[in-house]
Design a protein around this nucleic acid. Structure first.
Lengths: 149, 149
DNA sequence: TATTGTTATACTCTATAACTATA
DNA sequence: TATAGTTATAGAGTATAACAATA
């Protein structure tokens, strides 16, 4: 976990993979948070922009995506809208629903952020050889594919 | 990122690895947050307990570990201490410093949490064969080893 | 009746700034 | 002077509960 040495693993222990997975996740999240913070965004705000990068979603859709309550989404969207990063519009299909989508400023910002993310994370991935990178990608995608979680 | 399809990758794109890495990190973090929430803890509180699992650290040490401000640590430790999960004690070496360590209840809790984490994350890892699991662990540890990030 | 979204409320997380005590 | 930690303050993130509007 946060303390891999605590389990005394040296790559031979059964839970070593999960420890490594958690460790890598924290490192990755820290990098993403840094990129977001450098642009006065929280990690959640960054994720909202990323999700809307090429879609228009309803409030409920966004909340589902992030695993948050609708009321939490209202606040997040309020603040991002106030900053001119995204917009709301009544849904045409359903009078109760509200569509959310990026404003031009928001679209421009997420492109910059995305480039920043690739730049910030590449030191991690380029620690591996190209062949290793391909293998790692395959394994990660196989784990995701089994969306057992 | 949060929207891998947005980059139109199909495992052939250069940034596919980073997309997968981010995706896996979010999934992993969501599982950890769920385990924490099921025990009325935030992810950060869980991390504090995990870090202290087998060490006694000063406030500053904890803050460094988590990348948080000292004042933030004060609040986190206050609340956890109030719940009887950890304790503070004046450092013997340095009159200004404060050591933090788990209480018996906190120690018991983190063991249960750790077991819960392994159980909750195993559906992801067991999607891979044992040989793949070993390879993945090796690759992840190699990425971490190059603590370039 | 059920669903979509907002508002009110409360609490946690977080940072910045100002402060105390020790080094 | 510099460092360790706390406190005060403010804002963001989060959930629960109550509500209005629409389905």
């Amino acid at each position: 976990m946060d303390n891999p040495e605590a389990s005394g693993r040296d790559s031979a222990e059964p839970d070593g993979l999960i420890d490594a997975l958690v460790q890598v996740s924290f490192t990755t999240t820290a990098v993403l948070s840094k990129v977001a913070a450098d642009n006065d965004l929280s990690l959640t705000q960054l994720r909202v922009l990323a999700i809307l990068r090429d879609r228009r979603l309803r409030m409920a859709g966004l909340a589902d995506y992030l695993g948050l309550e609708k009321s939490t989404m209202s606040g997040l969207v309020d603040r991002a809208e106030k900053r001119g990063l995204l917009q709301r519009a009544a849904s045409l299909d359903d009078g109760r629903a509200v569509d959310v989508f990026l404003s031009p400023d928001g679209a421009e910002l997420i492109e910059r952020l995305y480039a920043g993310i690739l730049r910030s994370l590449s030191p991690m991935t380029t620690a591996l050889t190209p062949a290793e990178q391909r293998r790692l990608q395959t394994l990660l995608e196989r784990m995701l594919g089994t969306s057992a979680v």
